[in-house]
Amino acid sequence: MNPVVIRTVTRILVPFIQLFGFYIIVHGPVSPGGGFQGGVVVGASMILLALAYGAHEAESKVSHHVRIAMDSLGSLAYAGIGLLGIAAGGLFLQYNIIPLPLPPARVNGIMIFLIGVAIGVHIMALVLSLFLHTTEETEKDD
């Protein structure tokens, strides 16, 4: 089979898939979806890239170090938003009392959006990592 077809289709599709994924993340507070789902979609686009161009291509786009950083930073951001609630004098993850000059409903929305982004960043790195690690042909013994 000629990989050219697959590669071309992939090149066309990947940006749209990613755009859709980001849309799901960003639209999380008001519609079905959110960080996890969006993150999976974005991660899946990278998997598609890896399938079409080989794992090293995906690896070069989003390297191991970047994935680890995204993974950790996403989780830490989530925890940080949770701790903001405590810092504002409420309970953990109680973000409606975070003192912003906005109505509480808007504050909630912003915080859910931020959490969605944090989870999304975490998940997209995770999905790609899972795929790349399980398809590694031989483990590097270094």
Partner: peptide, 28 residues
């Protein structure tokens, strides 16, 4: 509100935060 009231969640979050800081620190 007293900060000690939050300790049940902090006791967990501290370790989870630490767990995600470790790979970051490992990069540096």
């Amino acid at each position: 509100m007293n900060i000690s009231q939050h300790f049940p969640i902090l006791v967990i979050i501290t370790l989870f935060t630490g767990a995600y800081l470790a790979p970051l620190a490992g990069l540096w």
